[in-house]
Structures are given as structure tokens and as C-alpha cells.
Amino acid sequence: MAVLLAGLVPALVTPWTTAPAHASFGISQHKGWDACGIGSTANAQAFWSNTPFWNMGLYIGGSQYGKGCTRWTPADVATLRGQGWKFLPLWVGPQAPCTSFASRFSADPATAYAQGRDEARAAYQVIVSYGWDTRDAPIIYDLEAFNTADAGCLAATQQFISGWVYQMHVPTAQKAGVYGSACASGLNTFASLANVPDFIDAADWSGNPSTGTIRCIPSGNWSGSRRHKQYAGDHTETWNGVTLNIDSDCSNGPVYPAPDELGNEQGCL
């Protein structure tokens, strides 16, 4: 996803209160990566052993998740967790109606809101199948770039995300995240929704890992350990003899599972 610059209206977001002490999330301040085609748990192990990585973008499904991308079984996910990974769980569902993706949500805001709720229910069922502690577990909606200057498309997208967040907050509530281009997925406009995402995962391919500096997102929005940043896009890296095409991430935000690993922030703050 190329990062495009577009001015968006700033708004303030209130930070969380102190996180509850249970297994469903921790706050990571470490580096990580995500990739569509990891291929195997053995390849993931190669990117764990004696590497700088702590976190892994775990794609858990959705209608727009690429056909050539790795599909993880519950047994695979248990193996990855046993390796030590902290997960950024990503759900790749329908995209904005003004895009060319095969799977798109409705241009009608009310319908899009209901569809956002449906996607949250579907993602929830997947983490249940993994046997996870679902209370406050973070799940990230992958929203690719779209024409944010199209007012109708933006309005539908905002309602879709509002529906996603609303349903994620139905008890037992999860933490609702959104991934997208920092400037071209309308992320900052979601700060003023009726149902504001708990955290963001912003693609800003500046090469700067600091989550405190994200283009098009004011520093006051999603402050207080509520940010992940994809700071470098598609590139290959080789670790322990395994080469993968990855995106590079840095975190100051929720990952699954707890405990957190604060104290070695790797330039992410």
C-alpha cells in the first residue's frame, strides 16, 4: 500500500485507563513484521530466533484476504504462540465501495454500519476457534487506501468502521483496531466517530519507526500506548536462512497475548 498525503481534520481521543491484568493483551513497545505468504511455522521460527522481532502480524481471515496468503489453523497458531510471538491479529474483510477490490461494503452508510458489525462477529468467531481469551483481545480491521476525497465513500467507510467498533465492544468486549494508510485510508477521521477505534495500526512508509510521529495523525490522537506503525513496506529480509517478503512494524500498543514486554522499546516510542 503506497502512503499518500492528504490533509484530514484532527480530533482528540481519550487514552485508556489502566489495562486489566489478564491474558488477552499486553502493551508492546517492540519491533515486528507482517507478511501474507509466510508459508509455515518453521519460517516464522526462523524470524524469531536471535532476531530483533517480538511481534508478528497474524492474518486471521476475511473475504479480501489474498488467495495466495498463508491460512493458519488453530494448531498452527498455537505453535506460533509457543514460539513466543506476540500477535497483531488482522482481519481483511470488504473494502471501501469506491475501490476496485472484489469484496466491497455498501455505499449506503446504514447498510455499511451493519456490515461492519457482521465483520466484527466473524472475526470474533475466529479468535474463539483459536481458544484465545477474548476479553479485551485486540483485533485489527485491515482497511486499504481509497479516495478519501469522495465524500459519499468516506461517509460509508466511517459508518462501516463505527459498526466494527460498536460490535467489538459488545460484552465480552474486544479492543477494536484499524489498519490503513496513515493518509489515504481516512484513519484520522475515525477519531470523531460515535464509536472510536481503541487503537490504530498506521502505514507510514517513512522509514522512521517512531509511533509518536505518524503523518496525517496528530500526536494527541490515539496517544497513551494505542499505536502501531508500519514504517516500511514490501521488502525482503533473510533470517536464519529463510527469506520472506515483509512489512516492518513498530509498536506502542496492544498485542495478544499478555504479559507485556515493556522496557525495551527499540525506537518505537
Results as ranks from 00 to 15, higher is better:
C153P: 04
L4N: 10
D142G: 06
K31C: 01
I200Y: 10
V170D: 06
Q230I: 09
A191M: 13
A173Y: 13
S210P: 05
G61D: 10
T213L: 06
V13D: 09
I127V: 15
D247C: 04
D198G: 11
A120R: 06
F87E: 06
W132S: 14
P171S: 15
Q83E: 08
F25C: 00
V126M: 00
T14S: 14
V196N: 08
K67V: 11
T111K: 15
P15N: 14
G180Q: 09
I161S: 06
E237H: 01
G68N: 12
V92Y: 07
G116L: 14
A182W: 05
Y179W: 00
Y179V: 02
W132H: 14
D247L: 07
W205F: 15
S49P: 01
A137I: 12
W132P: 03
H235E: 04
T236W: 02
T172I: 08
S206R: 00
T18W: 01
I127E: 12
D204L: 03
N240T: 03
W132V: 10
N43M: 01
Q167M: 13
T18G: 02
V178S: 07
A123P: 09
K86Q: 10
C36W: 15
L88A: 13
Q45W: 02
Q29F: 06
A122D: 07
L8H: 08
F146N: 05
A19W: 09
W16G: 04
P15F: 14
G68P: 02
F146D: 07
T70A: 11
N264W: 11
V242G: 03
I246S: 01
I200G: 10
Y166M: 12
V77Y: 04
W222G: 04
L8A: 10
A202H: 10
G224Q: 09
A44I: 01
G61M: 11
G163S: 11
C36L: 13
S225M: 04
T148W: 02
G241N: 12
N195E: 09
A21V: 07
W164A: 08
L80R: 01
A78M: 05
V178P: 08
V3M: 08
F146G: 05
V3C: 10
C98P: 02
R227T: 13
V170C: 01
